[in-house]
Design a binder for these strands. Structure first.
Length: 595
RNA sequence: GGUCCGAUAGCUCAACUGGAUAGAGCAACAGCCUUCUAAGCUGUAGGUUCGGGGUUCGAGUCCCUGUCGGAUCACCA
């Protein structure tokens, strides 16, 4: 039973009985704090049907609902707003329904499948703050879809080939002196990243030197020896030169090991990995097929293009004149391969930054032109960049925030603050360690997920490690407090069964307010999937925790003499703790038993 | 230059898709630990929702226009 749907149908009945017309779309919203009631019907649009002014319309519906619905106990009218007060028995029934439903927050299996891609790093440098937003977002959206009853495939595409990795390879060959993760003690991804930076340094110096000798800029950029070496390696790679391939797979191997360690720390996982080195050839094939079908065309120099001017876009290259593939070619291949691998998926979601909006618009158009009807069920989950207080992150300028460093700092900060508060006395060292990680990572994830994904956001390190207010740790703390209550109830032998709800006579306003938020939980989970927005879940969980804390602070649970009321409060607490746990799980955040 | 996105309290973000006197957190100030965890709670202060027009019972939200940010328009990925 869903309260909103029930109330809506009662309102529909009333309008039909009073004014003789069926209404479908009318606005039912939460009542403002300052007025009595929980639900408010906006009556202005109904005046056309009622032929009365808004106040009279509201009053008539209110009276009818009190007399006939059985769920509305009182009402008041302010201007055209009809504020409804539901009977306590309605709220209690709802609490009972939630409390006795072990899978509250998990909607039934709907038989649909969906694929969600996220992360998709290049293999030439370690993960950074931008990847964190990407991974947390994609992973969370996947969990939200699972909660909506979908079967979900979490995937990533690994950018393991191309000039970028050849740059690291070139620099390592020249300056590496055989350095490995083992000999250097560096994480593999960081080691490879180091040589990417080395490449850039050497390249810039060489270009500068050439220009000083009188070369033009364009010429110098092509002639720089280290760039020539990288290009040579790319060419050899495509020709499957065994020496280059060996170096390539060794260095990529280092990177994967490093990435995996980071993913593990992040609590992010994948069901299947795709590698561009496996998909770009399929992409080429598909482009050639498209060329035969006349979907694409060839220019004089041999390059292959698609003309999207009819769709308001430009012409776009799909194969270079030398026959090698570009980014778009690979993505075409990958998309097709995925639908072959998983024929039952209804669609695919790409979690990729908004600087690639144009790219995905083009990709989906091309797939449509190639005749794949699923093209229109591909969705680019486009999220905004993460800025720093100092401005944009620029890898070339060394202003990137490294993912490993950031996570370590967050955990360290969590540890420090937790120790200062003296919360670790009864914990074993392992338990304490787990708690610090839970809090540090929880703070970070919540900070990145609470903002609407579409929006560009500011990452202020000082604010992200805050543990008070609208933060992950605040919610984790609320959960821990409730668990303490439930442990106490257990030790006192207090249990709540289905029959107990009949004994509860009334509710305090603070309890109703908690229930009012709790009641919207599943609706928000649906909305979060529809909007691809974990922020909706984050906001809801925060509001729930806040509302519960008000209740907690004002009503000492175990002082209650009335056994029914006491049990009601235990049940409410349990329901809130479970919802918090479930909601946070959708964000990838664990909640502690004590903190 | 074309296209797209954004601008809300000092700062970071909300606002149920057109509804009531625009809400939270942080920062500031004032209170609350003898009862379940003060990482909490209560209160005060803080707003011309970038400017200007328009649409209607009603606009932060929709339309037009201007200003300021950002992204994109590569035989890069």
């Amino acid at each position: 039973m869903n309260l909103d749907t029930l109330l809506r149908s009662e309102i529909q009945k009333s309008v039909l009985a009073l004014f003789g017309q069926q209404v479908e779309n009318f606005q039912l919203q939460p009542t403002n704090q300052e007025f009595e009631g929980s639900h408010t019907l906006v009556c202005f649009p109904l005046t056309k049907i009622s032929k009365k002014n808004p106040e009279e319309t509201a009053k008539a519906i209110g009276e009818y609902l009190v007399a006939n619905s059985g769920i509305v106990s009182r009402f008041n009218v302010v201007k055209g707003f009809l504020n409804l007060v539901l009977g306590d028995s309605v709220w209690l029934q709802m609490l009972e329904a939630i409390y006795t439903n072990p899978s509250f927050g998990q909607l039934p299996d709907n038989g649909e499948e969906i694929m969600i891609e996220y992360s998709s790093p290049n293999t030439n440098k370690p993960l950074h703050l931008g990847h964190l937003r990407n991974n947390f977002l994609g992973w969370s959206v996947a969990e939200i879809y699972k909660a909506n009853g979908y079967k979900v495939h979490k995937v990533q595409i690994i950018n393991d080939r191309g000039i970028h990795i050849c740059k690291s390879m070139a620099a390592w060959t020249l300056y590496g002196d055989g350095e490995t993760p083992q000999t250097s003690g560096m994480k593999g991804d960081h080691l490879v990243g180091k040589y990417y930076v080395e490449f850039d340094k050497a390249y810039k110096a060489q270009v500068k030197a050439l220009i000083e000798k009188g070369a033009s800029e364009a010429e110098a950029e092509k002639q720089a020896p280290i760039m020539k070496l990288a290009s040579e390696m790319l060419r050899k790679w495509e020709q499957k030169d065994s020496e280059v391939l060996q170096l390539w797979s060794m260095m990529n191997g280092w990177v994967y090991k490093g990435f995996n360690a980071t993913y593990e720390k992040m609590g992010v996982d994948f069901d299947k990995l795709y590698y561009e080195s496996d998909t770009y050839l399929l992409g080429k094939e598909e482009v050639m097929k498209g060329l035969e079908k006349g979907v694409f065309f060839k220019k004089e120099d041999g390059s292959v293009w698609v003309d999207l001017t009819g769709d308001g876009l430009d012409q776009k290259v799909l194969l270079r004149a030398d026959g090698t593939s570009v980014y778009m070619t690979q993505d075409i291949g990958t998309a097709i391969l995925r639908f072959r691998d998983f024929p039952k998926i209804g669609g695919q979601v790409y979690t990729v930054g908004n600087e690639q909006e144009y790219h995905f618009k083009v990709l989906f158009l091309i797939l449509g032109k190639l005749g794949y009807e699923w093209a229109k069920r591909c969705y680019h989950l486009s999220y905004g960049m993460v800025d720093l207080p100092t401005g944009k992150m620029k890898s070339r300028e060394g202003t990137v925030v490294d993912a490993d460093d950031l996570i370590d700092e967050m955990v360290k900060e969590a540890e420090q603050q937790t120790r200062e508060l003296g919360k670790v006395e009864d914990l074993t060292p392992q338990e304490a360690r787990q708690l610090f990680e839970m809090i540090g990572l929880g703070a970070l994830k919540f900070f990145l997920l609470k903002v609407d994904p579409k929006k560009r956001m500011l990452f202020d390190p000082n604010e992200s490690i805050q543990l008070q207010g609208f933060t992950g740790p605040f919610i984790q703390y609320t959960h821990a407090r409730i668990r303490a209550i439930l442990r106490k109830a257990e030790s006192l032998g207090i249990t709540v069964a289905k029959e107990d709800f009949k004994v509860i006579k009334s509710l305090e306003p603070a309890e109703r307010e908690v229930l009012q938020v709790l009641q919207t939980f599943e609706g928000k989970i649906k909305e979060a999937a529809r909007e691809y927005a974990p922020s909706i879940v984050a906001n809801l969980v925060y509001e729930l925790a806040k509302e519960y804390n008000q209740f907690y602070q004002n009503i000492p649970i175990f002082n209650e003499a009335d056994a029914g009321k006491l049990k009601g409060r235990i049940a409410l607490s349990k329901a809130v703790a479970d919802a918090i746990k479930k909601g946070m799980q959708l964000l990838g955040i664990q909640v502690p038993e004590r903190m």
